[in-house]
Design a protein around this nucleic acid. Structure first.
Lengths: 237, 237
DNA sequence: GAAAAGCGAGAGCACTGCTCACAATTCTGT
DNA sequence: ACAGAATTGTGAGCAGTGCTCTCGCTTTTC
């Protein structure tokens, strides 16, 4: 029977990834052990090396898969908003999706956005899937630009050249001022999730999720609102 | 000679911490090895257990020390601004100090704000030093309030109760709207540093530091500027 | 000066990633 | 159909880890 071997190989490879994910959820990326996986599979430890070259390679596979799942979650959240022109609603949806994914898969989120494994340079294979969730956000900015919102956000001169690259990479035309607020919203989003998920808010705020809500609301306004800065009556100008 | 033993003990304890820091800088927190420290000290591995109870305890000591250094860096940066009323300048100074500290001590920063060690609940000892750098930011908000800036930033109702705690913890009176923009700025700051330091910008922007600059500039305006949102001519209301 | 406390050495346990030679199995080309 | 090749699992083994325990030696304390 041709292909039997291939199917068996694919099956145990999938088993290994599955067990690895469970192990990571239980003990963190640190506690990922090939020997434990082998035990779980009823094999001797050296046997799993027939399927995965090293512990780092397994980690890389998990990273790629996690990026993919996160990207998928962001995409379905964005597509779930019927009124495509309501950028603020889409931003909220995507931001919440990313946070929800992080909260339900904390170890995988930590694998992606926590401390990088030292001496472990992300292989080229990971940068593709990594851009998936980012692309959702960039597309949001492009669609926002299409609605004709004008911003007087100052764009630091030094940033223009750097930001030009983003257009090239993603192939989406976005105004510089939009990119600035977009990048800022991205950073705030990830920062809020990190602070909450990694337990830095326990002594600051009663309900850790509060920070996230505030950040999303504020940057939602910043993205779609328009003007920021200056020009308040009590501003001592 | 009385106290000889004590001084020797303090000396080797300091040596252990020092070597541990070097090791972490070289190999990351993952690569911190008590046996390697013992080798470096010319002792047998079991001897270092006279000075440190376990690897986790060493990690905790490093965390406390790192929080302390970060807090000190933030404090001197803030104090370095002569015009105390120039909140924006102080914000820039503190933000830059935190980023600089992170860039020059990446492994220690990762220890504080990266993936928490699984199953390792931050001991009570760490929460004191952890608030030191936070206090600098909160004090900034209090001083900002004292300048009389008025904001019409909407404060989500659900946040009020949560935020009240911050006042209690730090004992500094701050308006709710100020706290909202302050927390948001904090999240954005940490998010930008994380994204840059952990290498998530390499495929997005030419110069990774660009995101940080944009975030600091924007939230500097948000903090000290006043109004945000709405009210633009082209805003389709 | 004797008792107590602290310190370093060394052996040992259980665990890890990873390699290698060997045997059993399955696939493939003629 | 059968021989040769490729694949898969086994078990031993190496080097490393955190940590424990006992045994002497030194310093401090009473």
């Amino acid at each position: 029977m041709a292909g039997t071997r291939e199917r068996a190989r694919a099956a145990t490879t999938a088993d290994i990834l599955c067990i690895a994910r469970e192990q990571m959820a239980a003990l963190g990326a640190e506690g990922l052990s090939l020997r434990a996986i082998a035990r779980e599979l009823g094999m001797v430890s050296s046997a799993v090396y027939r399927y995965v070259a090293s512990r780092d390679e397994l980690l890389t596979a998990l990273i790629i898969d996690s990026y993919d799942r996160l990207g998928a979650a962001a995409e379905v959240a964005d597509r779930g908003v019927r009124r495509r022109a309501d950028i603020r609603a889409r931003w909220r949806a995507v931001a919440n999706a990313i946070r929800d994914w992080a909260m339900t898969n904390p170890s995988e989120y930590a694998l992606l956005f926590g401390t990088p494994v030292p001496g472990y340079a992300a292989p080229q294979d990971t940068i593709g899937p990594a851009t998936r969730y980012t692309l959702v956000l960039v597309q949001l900015l492009a669609d926002l630009d299409a609605t004709g919102v004008v911003r007087d956000t100052p764009v630091p001169k030094a940033l223009r050249a750097d930001i030009a690259r983003l257009r090239d990479v993603f192939g989406v035309p976005v105004h510089e001022s939009t990119l600035v607020v977009g990048l800022s919203a991205w950073a705030a989003l990830m920062g809020a999730i990190n602070l909450e998920l990694f337990g830095h808010l326990h002594n600051v705020v009663d309900r850790p999720g509060a920070l996230f809500e505030a950040v999303v609301a504020q940057h939602g306004e910043l993205l779609t609102g328009g003007t920021i800065g200056g020009r308040t009556a009590s501003n001592p100008t």
